[in-house]
Design a binder for these strands. Structure first.
Length: 373
RNA sequence: GUGGAUGUAGCUCAACGGCAGAGCGCCGCACUGUGGAUGCGGUGGUUGAGGGUUCAAGUCCCUUCAUCCACC
C-alpha cells in the first residue's frame, strides 16, 4: 500500500496535455485537478460535504495562517488537519513563502530564513526551511511544499538572488523532510518571467529528484502571454513521471492554457473569493449577479451547470441573497464556481483520454471570447 | 380650533447670510500559492411651494402647504 503512495501514473497525453492519477494516503487524484483553497482549514462558506458534492478531491490549506492560529501543535495534538477539519480526502499545504512575500513590508529575508510580524497581533516570528517543513509535518497534509522566496516577476537582479536562495532552501527542505511515506515534498520552480532563470531553476530542482514539482511566482502581475510562455519554457524540463503543480491559478482560460502546456494540478482562491463578492463563472465568462439586469431573471446561474445551486435556485433569488448580504449567497456562488472549474478539469481529462483535447480547448476558449470585451 | 416643532439626494442627516455636502442606498468595475463577505469608481438636488429683504438666501421676513407633538 505504502509503495503505491505518491506514484504518478500517466494514462494519456494529447499534445502537451496529460491525464493521470496520483496516489496519496488519503485517496487518488485524477489529473488534471483543481484544488479549492481552504487557508484556515476551511474553504470559506463551503462545508466538506459540499466539497464532495462539487467533485473536489484535493484541498489546499495554509501553513502561515494555521501556524499563527490555532497553531500547528494544537492541530497535531487533535489528530492532524484531516481530522481537525473533517476532510478525509487529500490535502496540500503551502509553505508560507507566498505569505511572507505578499504580506510583504513587515518581513526580513536572510539566507537563514525569514523573520516577520504576525498580521494578527504584530508578534515577531521566524520561518526557516526546516521550520516550515516541521510545521507542515505537524499539520499532516499529503502534499507539502518547499519553503521558497518570491520576487517581483520583472525584477531580474532580485529574481536571481531569490532564486539561488530558493534552491539552497530546497536542499534544506529535502534534508528536513523525514515523512516520505506519508507526505510528498514538492520543489518549487521560480525565476520570474526570465527564460534563463526559469530553465536553470527547472534543471536544478529536477536534479534533486522531488516527488513532484510546482511552478511558483506566476499570476502575480505579469501578462498572460508571459505566464503561458514561462510554462512552455519550464514544463519540458520537468520529469514526465512526476506531477506538475501551477500555484495560484486560476481562471477558466488559465486552466485550459495550463493543461495544454502540461500542468496537472492547480489551486486558486479566485472562484471562492469572487463568489463572496457576487460573481459567478459561467461558460461564457464572469457575471456579476448583483447587477440590476438579473433582478427578475428566473434562469439558473449557468443553464449548462449541474451544481446544486443551478439545479435549485434562480439568478433573481441569488441576486436577492447577495444584495441582502445573506450567507447563503456566498455558499451557493462558491459551490457553483468550484463546480464550474472542477467540471472543466473533468471534461479536459475526458477529452485528453479520447484524443479530442485540442478541439475541446478551442471550443471552450471560443465561447469565453464570444462574450468577453 | 389654538400653540409649538420639522420640511435639504431614494433614506438618515450636515452646511456662521458667501462654491449644497456626508453616510447609507442605488448603479458599475476589480479580485489568480485568501488577514480582512473586501476594495475602487460613478449616479444622485427647482433646499415643500410662492413672494420679499440683500451684492449674495438652505439660512432672514411674509404667505401658503404638508407632517409630527401638545392642548382644546
Amino acid at each position: 500500500m505504502t509503495a503505491e503512495h505518491f506514484v504518478f501514473r500517466l494514462q494519456a497525453t494529447d499534445g502537451g496535455a496529460r491525464a493521470g492519477t496520483y496516489c496519496t494516503p488519503h485517496g487518488a487524484l485524477s489529473t488534471p485537478v483543481f484544488a479549492p483553497v481552504g487557508t484556515l482549514g476551511t474553504v470559506k462558506a463551503v462545508s466538506p460535504r459540499d466539497l464532495i458534492d462539487v467533485g473536489a478531491s484535493l484541498v489546499l490549506a495554509n501553513t502561515y495562517h494555521l501556524y499563527l492560529r490555532p497553531g500547528d501543535g494544537l492541530i497535531r495534538d487533535l489528530g492532524g488537519l484531516h481530522a481537525f477539519m473533517g476532510w478525509e480526502g487529500p490535502i496540500l499545504t503551502d509553505s508560507g513563502g507566498f505569505q511572507v512575500w505578499s504580506l510583504g513590508s513587515n518581513s526580513q529575508v536572510s539566507d537563514d530564513g525569514v523573520t516577520f510580524r504576525s498580521h494578527l497581533d504584530g508578534s515577531l516570528h521566524q520561518f526557516t526551511p526546516e521550520r516550515s517543513i516541521a510545521i507542515q509535518q505537524n499539520l499532516g497534509a499529503d502534499i507539502i511544499m518547499c519553503f521558497d522566496e518570491l520576487a517581483d516577476p520583472d525584477d531580474y537582479a532580485y529574481s536571481q538572488v531569490a532564486l539561488e536562495r530558493t534552491h539552497r532552501w530546497a536542499e534544506r527542505c529535502l534534508a528536513a523532510w523525514k515523512t516520505g511515506d506519508s507526505q510528498a515534498l514538492f520543489g518549487i520552480v521560480q525565476g520570474g518571467i526570465f527564460d534563463d532563470l526559469r530553465q536553470a531553476s527547472a534543471r536544478t530542482l529536477a536534479a534533486m529528484d522531488f516527488p513532484g514539482y510546482a511552478i511558483g511566482g506566476l499570476s502575480v502581475g505579469e501578462s498572460k502571454e508571459e505566464m503561458y510562455h514561462t510554462l512552455e519554457v519550464v514544463t519540458p524540463l520537468l520529469p514526465a513521471n512526476k506531477p506538475r503543480y501551477l500555484m495560484g491559478v486560476g481562471t477558466i482560460e488559465d486552466l485550459i492554457h495550463g493543461v495544454s502546456r502540461g500542468i496537472d494540478i492547480f489551486d486558486c482562491v479566485l472562484p471562492t473569493r469572487i463568489a463572496r463578492h457576487g460573481a459567478a463563472l459561467t461558460q461564457s465568462g464572469q457575471i456579476n449577479i448583483r447587477n440590476a439586469q438579473y433582478e427578475r431573471d428566473d434562469r439558473p446561474l449557468d443553464p449548462q451547470c449541474d451544481c446544486y445551486a443551478c439545479q435549485h435556485f434562480t439568478r433573481a433569488y441569488i441576486r436577492h441573497l447577495s444584495k441582502s448580504n445573506e450567507i447563503l449567497a456566498s455558499t451557493l456562488l462558491s459551490i457553483h464556481n468550484l463546480r464550474t472549474l472542477i467540471r472543466l478539469t473533468e471534461e479536459m481529462r475526458a477529452a485528453i483520454v479520447d484524443g479530442s483535447f485540442q478541439s475541446y480547448a478551442a471550443e471552450t476558449l471560443g465561447r469565453l471570447k464570444a462574450v468577453s470585451p
